[in-house]
């Protein structure tokens, strides 16, 4: 991590990677650019535009899978000259080749969606990549405000439209929330013209997944909501107020060791660690 810092510290040559997957329209099931992933591309493009005026910054839009997949064209139509594709078998696990690519390419910021719109849709890819690379992950990012001196100021999306401002040292992985800026329109001409930079990579078949069978998700029954609010003000509060967390404590002035001990105790207490 240390060498990266000095590069970003000058404010020059910020390397951004946006990871994209093939999306699925919720109503028609048709292939499309995934909503959150295209927001990740939008944020990448925004950082590129607002960043270094000397143009040292770069954005790579990266996909692991089939380069002929028409869904990728939707991203290209946002005005990309090329899409980097790690070609691998559709049944293969994408995490390993993505991790290797990122390790080699050494970007400063990796942007992903929170979860894919098809396949496992577990939302695990950013976490697994972060683990592999040893980088921090910031989930559900709404915006990246600035990148200065190797530190990014990031707005994280919280429920009910609230935001949390975080400062993160580069490099890091951010998963982009649906609250982030809408993706720009995808235009047919650039979409058709963009190059697919294909790199064939070794991959291993996802053994576990092979035996799974896919079925459409069933809607879970909804718990009936009993409305207790009597007045409009109460209803408004119920709809907007942050739910009060119970218990817990804020530790700001304690030493790092004490803070870590408190977290460790809590994890033991909750049965996360045994």
């Amino acid at each position: 991590m240390q060498p990266k810092q000095s590069i970003a510290a000058t404010g020059n040559n910020l390397k951004i990677v946006s990871l994209i997957s093939v999306g699925k329209h919720p109503q028609s099931g048709r292939v499309r650019r995934a909503d959150q992933d295209s927001r990740a591309v939008e944020l990448g493009m925004k950082l590129l535009d607002s960043g270094n005026p000397t143009g040292g910054d770069s954005l790579v839009v990266l996909h692991a899978g089939d380069p002929k997949e028409p869904g990728l064209r939707g991203y290209a139509g946002m005005g990309l000259n090329s899409v980097q594709v790690l070609e691998l078998d559709p049944a293969a696990d994408a995490v390993a080749p993505l991790g290797e690519y990122l390790q080699q390419f050494a970007p400063d910021i990796v942007l992903t969606g929170v979860r894919a719109e098809g396949g496992e849709s577990s939302g695990m890819v950013p976490y697994q990549l972060a683990e592999k690379l040893g980088w921090p992950i910031v989930p559900r990012v709404a915006d990246i405000i600035s990148v200065e001196a190797g530190v990014a100021e990031v707005l994280q999306a919280l429920p009910r439209g609230q935001r949390r401002s975080l400062k993160i040292r580069l490099p890091f992985i951010a998963s982009i929330d649906s609250a982030a800026q809408d993706a720009r329109q995808s235009a047919y001409g650039p979409a058709s013209r963009a190059m697919m930079d294909i790199e064939i990579v070794d991959s291993s078949t996802d053994q576990l997944r092979e035996n799974w069978s896919e079925a459409p998700a069933k809607k879970r029954p909804k718990r009936l909501k009993v409305i207790k609010a009597k007045t409009a003000a109460e209803r408004f509060k119920a709809a907007t107020a942050k739910s009060q967390s119970e218990g817990g404590k804020v530790m700001q002035n304690e030493s790092a060791a004490e803070q870590a001990q408190a977290i460790f105790d809590l994890l033991l207490e909750e049965g996360v660690l045994r």
């Binding site: 329209h25 109503q27 028609s28 048709r30 499309r32 139509g77 946002m78 005005g79 720009r184 329109q185 995808s186 235009a187 001409g189 650039p190």
Partner: peptide, 19 residues
């Protein structure tokens, strides 16, 4: 070429393409 259909235009086109 530019992807600059204003206001709800882009959304409507996306919908038509997808559904």
């Amino acid at each position: 070429e530019k992807g600059q259909t204003p206001n709800k235009g882009a959304e409507v086109l996306d919908n038509i393409i997808a559904t």
